[in-house]
Design a protein around this nucleic acid. Sequence first.
DNA 1: CTGATTGCAAATGCTTTGCACGCCA
DNA 2: TGGCGTGCAAAGCATTTGCAATCAG
Lengths: 165, 165
Amino acid sequence: MDLGIQERLNDFIRRKGLRRTSQRDTIVKAAFSKDEHFTADELFDRVRKLDSETSRATVYRTLGLLVEADLLREIDLGENQTTYDPNFLDKPSHNHLLCIDCGRVVEFEDSHLDMLNDCITRRLGFKPVRQTIKIEANCEQLRLKGRCPNLIATRLTGKRLRKKR
Amino acid sequence: MDLGIQERLNDFIRRKGLRRTSQRDTIVKAAFSKDEHFTADELFDRVRKLDSETSRATVYRTLGLLVEADLLREIDLGENQTTYDPNFLDKPSHNHLLCIDCGRVVEFEDSHLDMLNDCITRRLGFKPVRQTIKIEANCEQLRLKGRCPNLIATRLTGKRLRKKR
DNA sequence: CTGATTGCAAATGCTTTGCACGCCA
DNA sequence: TGGCGTGCAAAGCATTTGCAATCAG
């Protein structure tokens, strides 16, 4: 876990006149312990392993705080629960590719894509702030060979796309 | 409203061994009466004006049908309710730009963007199926002149971004 | 006829909130 | 000490579902 995260949160908390608490520390530790995406509920489970007292409500409240502080980002993976991505600090403009076959998520960055998007935005008369790209795709290797070697390359492990409820 | 939509739905219904009902006809008519994005609830309101009997449950069930038939597409505008976009029949690969200042949604297409995305996807070892791009941006003209002339260009009227609940 | 469809109300599931108590600054 | 933060349980809200009646083919 990036050692700067706790500090960043502390800065944010100080600037906003909020308070540092053990619950918030625990939640931050849990949230950034892996680079996997997670839901509020999954985070709650992780938090509970570190501290069996912290409540679900506090997890939700702290998630809001972390998003506001831009330490965490909500992403749309086509699920019903909000999913949080802790990797935007390392890769500020990464995007997501979802494998339709196995549901894994591959993160990727592409500066050309970023630039093209910025051009389009400006051409439309706007000032770019943020762009979100989600690509859904089939695994070509899976189709040809029956397995998904590409997925080894992803930093995200075990993350599966859930069925719509 | 595109005259082919009702037919397309009929085809879909026939293929799947389902049945055509007056409710479904009404809902389709309401859904494609404008090219605005809408939520289930907004659609329900429109439907009620055409037929005060149709239930909310049927609207939800029919929305699922229309998405499955690929006549309607769910899009992510950062709201809490699912938003539906009826414009993918006319513009199969369009994307969305959200004005942070006034909340309006501008639809745009760009073949370069599509191609670049396809390249990236293939380079990662996948076969492109669908891509979704959401750009959030500030209105440059608003900043300079105090008003938003660009927005006149959009096909979508009156659509505002709602606050998170 | 027969199974698909509907309306209603109840249920679901995620997320938010009111409130009283506790704790940080 | 003044409020911000927390836990708990109770809301809230969008969406789904069970069921009996109804309707399409």
